[in-house]
Design a protein around this nucleic acid. Structure first.
Lengths: 129, 129
DNA sequence: CGGTATCCTAGCTGATACTG
DNA sequence: CAGTATCAGCTAGGATACCG
């Protein structure tokens, strides 16, 4: 039984908030890139995420900040400088994500190899009847 | 540095496939409900997920099956019976999700309490200059 | 019972343009 | 540099209807 999700009563769901944010496109990649340096600036981050737009990056960062995973430090200079970094909370999360990555690696099936699906099973039964 | 994601080279990304599936709505809840019983039938599962439609449940289950997290067993009876269950792979994942849940619980901030955001920080600097 | 087929909509996403 | 504003396209998700 997985804790942290409701039993259908609509209660707490501690996971759900983070899950929604992390499930969004780019979130995980942003976190990954943040984990490579202590601090990182907006455009530096953007360059490292080939294909992301300022709009989306900015939005993702805001969401991550709201979830307490990212800290933003603004230097009131011209030109402006903003540095992003991971919070301790995010660093703990990183550990779990690494486990997840290990899990994914462990179970990764070679591309093209498919397990027998229910459809396959059904077909077998049908042809043998 | 989080492993399992590309370095921007477009390579492996073992996590990404699962992540896309798990990030979708209901996926986690389906997994949770599967974890409460050895096997579960379609409509039983549907009833336990108040609000989900057959369309989406079916879709999610197919995705989870493709990711190797769910097994489907079809009994060629009338009326048809289909049983879903978690794979060993999914049971290992469950452990990680529990850790994630513990993490979420640990860092959960009481509703309504907000950390100082960058906007707040900027405002403070501005008013003090 | 256990789905698929179809359609519709909200929201995410990204491109473009602009600003302090 | 570090964003926002605006708009357009697409897709995920859900409602409904139907089928083996």
């Amino acid at each position: 039984m997985i804790e942290g999700l409701t039993d259908g009563k609509g209660a707490t769901c501690a996971i759900v908030g983070v899950w929604e944010v992390l499930g969004r496109r780019w979130s995980l990649h942003i976190l990954k890139n943040l984990s490579t340096k202590e601090v990182i600036r907006f455009n530096e981050l953007k360059r490292s995420l080939a294909g992301i737009s300022s709009t989306v990056l900015s939005e993702r960062l805001l969401e991550l900040e709201r979830e307490g995973l990212v800290t933003k430090k603004i230097y009131p200079e011209v030109p402006p400088r903003v540095e992003y970094s991971m919070t301790p909370q995010a660093k703990e999360l990183e550990v779990i994500i690494k486990e997840l990555a290990r899990w994914a690696e462990k179970w990764k099936r070679p591309a093209g190899l498919r397990v027998a699906t229910a459809a396959t099973v059904a077909a077998q039964k049908k042809s043998s009847s």
